[in-house]
């Protein structure tokens, strides 16, 4: 193929962009975490391991980390719960209706996280529609303050990440050939049994992709807790950002970011290893 080389050169600008402004920054982040601290400027000269010692020795930071990981796991689980029925619904639709519901699930992806969080602020405000409806229905006597609680943060993040979970699961479900369900029925399995023994396991490649993505993104989510969580609850991303732009302590902030990334990766790795057998059996 003599025309192949020019074609490959076409990829060069993009590769250069991502190497320079994506790969190197991550390298820089790790390098920064070993730099010495300094007063009056972001970092000093020389190298040290002290930031890691400080971060891992202080319950303030380890607490935030654990809270972030646990909340991430909770958000992922809730996302899965919400997304599976949607994906199932989507994968069974055809034609016009498919497009309509697909749009319902995809369009939130095109709306900024901030705007979607703001939508929740409007809905759950003390004089907002949820409180008024609940009072009108007699469920509560006086307005409930939901804003700046952990509950609303989790709910808003589930809302933000649901499309990331639905799309891979729906794709996996679409790859489950309808004859498999028919075969299962002809062998005597009812609808629930078929779901449990055939549809559910075969959706696993999508579940695995969705769970991994949502967990990674939710542990590192910054905006939503900052906007809806108020000052009360410290999650790791907020702690990192405070160190970086509040205290101007870049090396320490970098160390916290690296710790957060590494522990997220560790959880993902454990999940991948634990589900290795199922993944191996169900890969397309």
């Amino acid at each position: 193929m003599k025309r192949l080389l020019p074609r490959l050169l076409l990829g060069l600008p993009a590769v250069a962009l991502l190497t320079l402004f994506f790969v190197l920054p991550y390298v820089e982040m790790v390098a920064m975490s070993f730099r010495a601290p300094a007063f009056g400027q972001p970092f000093g000269s020389g190298h040290t391991l002290m930031h890691y010692g400080r971060a891992l020795g202080d319950p303030l930071y380890t607490g935030a980390l654990v809270r972030s990981l646990l909340t991430g796991a909770l958000i992922t689980a809730l996302c899965l719960l919400v997304s599976f029925p949607l994906a199932l619904h989507l994968s069974r639709l055809q034609g016009r209706w498919h497009v309509v519901f697909y749009a319902c699930i995809v369009s939130p992806l095109l709306i900024g996280v901030l705007v979607r969080n703001f939508g929740w602020m409007v809905l759950v405000a003390v004089d907002g529609p949820f409180n008024r409806w609940a009072m009108a229905a007699g469920l509560i006597e006086r307005p409930v303050r939901v804003l700046f609680t952990q509950g609303i943060v989790v709910m808003a993040l589930v809302h933000v990440f649901t499309p990331f979970m639905v799309l891979p699961i729906a794709t996996a479900l679409r790859n489950v050939r309808p004859e498999l369900r028919e075969a299962s029925a002809s062998l005597g399995a009812g609808a629930f049994e078929t779901f449990r023994r055939v549809t559910l396991p075969l959706s696993f490649p999508g579940v695995q992709a969705g769970v991994t993505l949502v967990f990674v993104l939710s542990v590192a989510a910054y905006v939503t807790p900052a906007l809806l969580g108020g000052q009360g609850i410290a999650y790791m991303p907020a702690v990192v950002v405070r160190e970086l732009i509040g205290s101007f302590a870049w090396p320490f902030g970098a160390a916290l970011a690296v710790i957060m990334a590494a522990s997220t990766l560790a959880v993902v790795t454990v999940f991948t290893l634990a589900t290795h057998r199922l993944a191996e059996r169900t890969r397309a």
Binding site: R177, E179, A183, S184, L187, R281, T282
Partner: peptide
């Protein structure tokens, strides 16, 4: 019992 054209064996 049904035997399908593409066998429809459960891949997992």
């Amino acid at each position: 019992g049904v035997v399908f054209q593409n066998y429809a064996l459960f891949p997992h």
